[in-house]
Amino acid sequence: MTAEHLTPEDRQSPDSLSPPDRESPDSLASPDRESPDSLAAAVLARLRTAFPRAGVSLRTNPGPAVQHSLLVSPADLCDVCRFLRDTPDLAFDFLSNVSGVDWPDPSKADAVAAPADEQGTPAAAAGFLEVIYHLYSTRRRIGPLVLRVRTADRLSGVQIPSVVAVFRSAEFQEREIFDLYGVEFTGHPDLRRILMWDEFQDHPMRKDYVAPDDYEYEPTPHAAVLEKAQRHYVQP
């Protein structure tokens, strides 16, 4: 910006953007950015006191990223999100990312997000779909707090309550997960397909999705490609 548009008093020292003073003295007072595991555990303790009967359990991440997560039961999701957003010393006001994951093999899901304590529910018998939320706090500058929610199965019990009423940023992301994974977000204001066209039948990001073979002729003579093309375009 040229000088005429920026008065000297507008300039601020670079350290004025340092995190604001963290006021509350509890376990969350100084969450360490480098170890979100303490974050998930601390938030879990708060949630257990606030919602004694809520189905929330800690899931540990075996990888080097140590972003541990909280498995939330679908029924409690909206309450938990609202609590996380509105409690002043938590203030998770920013839902950054919503991912859908397909787990046809539930044991794999429990390997990536291992149950940490006695409340960890045992692995489901059938596969399920999972939605993962990454929450941050813009005011307290902490995160990510990872929440995971699982559907009952992959066929008919694919309902999860929508969090759009709490976090508007989930609107398009939930639509995308509905489109690509088939998770039905109950209470979503406008649940339509977003990336695929409306008449599309399947959910392409599911692991068992079979891609159509009706693509255009491709000259690379890969055996599989050629075979598929020949199958589709029956030679006269």
Binding site: M1, H5, E9, D10, R11, Q12, S16, L17
Partner: peptide
């Protein structure tokens, strides 16, 4: 502290 705006109108 409320940071001040940089864009002057």
């Amino acid at each position: 502290m409320e940071p001040s705006a940089d864009i002057k109108r």
